[in-house]
Nucleic acid binder design. Structure first.
Length: 307
DNA sequence: ACCCCTAGCTTCGTTACGTCA
DNA sequence: GTTGACGTAACGAAGCTAGGG
C-alpha cells in the first residue's frame, strides 16, 4: 500500500460523507489515502450505516460502535428473515409469511403471559383513545386482524372521534410497555408480521403501534450512531490536521536543507511505501517529486548522503 | 423472459402531543 | 398558568422487493 499526502484539491476525502453530516469541518483540503478501496463502492441508500468504518483506514482507533442495536448479521425484515428470536414467543409461532400471511390463528399465543396479575403487562393502563380515531380503527382492523366490533372491551371501538376532532391522539406508552419493546428490540430490530402481532397482543397495543415504535426506535439508534460517527470523524479530522501541519513544517525544513546543500539535489525523488506486512514505511527511489512521511513514527526519509 | 400491478416492508422527514423545567 | 425545549408517537411520501397475472 502506498501513502499519498495531498495538500490540495482532493474533492472528497471521505466519500461516505456525501450526505451532509453535523460536522463543522473547516476546509482543510486534506486527503490521506491508503489505497484501500471499499469493495462495495456505491452504498445502497437504505443500507445500514453500522459497518461504515469497518475497514478503518484512518486510525487504529476505530469509531465507537454504540451498543444500541442487536446488530445481528444483517437481519432485515424481509420474508426470508422469519426467525423468531423472541424467547417468549417460542413454540407458538411458525414461519411468518409475507403475503397472504396475516398471522391469523395465533392470537392466543401469549395470552398466558398477559393474564398473570403480577406480570408487567397486566398492569398496563392503555389509553385507547387512539383506537377511537378513524385511522386507528382502520389500522387496527387491517393490521391486527381484530374486529373492532368484537373488541369492545379494549377501550371502546366507536367511531366518534371525528365528532370529537381527535384524529391524532397521542398515546404515551407505559414504562413497562417501553421496557418490553426495548427488550424485543435488543433481540431483533425488525419484526416480521407474526412477531409484530404477537408483541402487540402481548402488550395490549395495536400492531400499528408496535410497528411505529420499531420504526422510531431504529431511527433513534441511527441518529445516535451518526452522532458517534461524527465525533469520531471530528477526532480524525483534528488528528490529520495536526499531522498535516507537522508534515508541512517538516517539508519546509527539508526544502531549506536541500537549498543549503545542493548536493542533495542530485538524489532521485523518493517515494514512501508502506510495507503491508509490517506496516512500516520504507523508501523507494523512484518517481514522484513530493513525498512525506506518515504518522508512523518509524517513517524516515533516506536523505543521508551516499557514502 | 418481460412488464405491470399490488402488497408489504423500509427509511426519511415532519407533525403534534405529553412532559418537564 | 404560561412558555419553550425536548422526547417521542404517529403520519405521509418515496423507494425497494417479491409475488402474481
Amino acid at each position: 500500500m502506498e501513502l499519498a499526502l495531498s495538500l490540495g484539491d482532493t474533492p472528497k476525502p471521505f466519500s461516505f460523507l456525501e450526505k451532509p453530516q453535523k460536522i463543522h469541518s473547516k476546509d482543510l483540503g486534506f486527503c490521506m489515502s491508503t489505497g484501500k478501496v471499499s469493495s462495495d463502492g456505491g452504498e445502497k441508500s437504505n443500507k445500514s450505516d453500522e459497518s461504515r468504518f469497518s475497514d478503518g483506514p484512518i486510525s487504529s482507533d476505530p469509531p465507537v460502535q454504540l451498543d444500541l442495536l442487536p446488530f445481528s448479521p444483517v437481519q432485515r425484515s424481509h420474508p426470508s428473515s422469519n426467525k423468531l428470536p423472541f424467547p417468549w414467543l417460542k413454540d407458538k409461532l411458525g414461519e411468518g409469511g409475507r403475503k397472504g400471511d396475516d398471522g391469523s390463528g395465533d392470537h392466543e399465543t401469549t395470552a398466558a403471559a398477559v393474564s398473570s396479575p403480577n406480570s408487567a403487562v397486566s398492569s398496563f393502563q392503555v389509553d385507547f383513545s387512539m383506537f377511537r380515531s378513524a385511522r386507528g380503527k382502520r389500522d387496527f382492523e387491517q393490521l391486527s386482524g381484530f374486529n373492532s366490533e368484537a373488541e369492545g372491551d379494549r377501550g371502546g371501538a366507536g367511531s366518534d372521534d371525528e365528532e370529537n376532532g381527535l384524529a391524532r391522539k397521542k398515546l404515551r406508552l407505559t414504562k413497562d410497555q417501553s421496557a418490553f419493546l426495548e427488550e424485543s428490540f435488543k433481540e431483533h430490530n425488525t419484526l416480521n408480521p407474526k412477531q409484530k402481532l404477537a408483541l402487540a397482543k402481548q402488550l395490549n397495543l395495536r400492531a400499528r403501534q408496535v410497528e411505529v415504535w420499531f420504526q422510531n426506535r431504529r431511527a433513534r439508534t441511527k441518529l445516535k450512531q451518526t452522532e458517534v460517527d461524527c465525533e469520531y470523524l471530528k477526532r480524525c479530522c483534528e488528528t490529520l490536521t495536526e499531522e498535516n501541519r507537522r508534515l508541512q513544517k517538516e517539508l519546509q525544513e527539508l526544502r531549506a536543507l536541500k537549498a543549503s546543500q545542493p548536493f542533495y539535489m542530485q538524489l532521485p525523488a523518493t517515494t514512501l511505501t508502506m510495507c503491508p506486512s509490517c506496516e512500516r514505511v520504507v523508501t523507494t527511489t523512484a518517481t514522484t517529486a513530493t513525498t512525506a512521511t506518515t504518522s508512523t513514527s518509524t517513517a524516515a526519509f533516506s536523505l543521508s548522503p551516499p557514502s
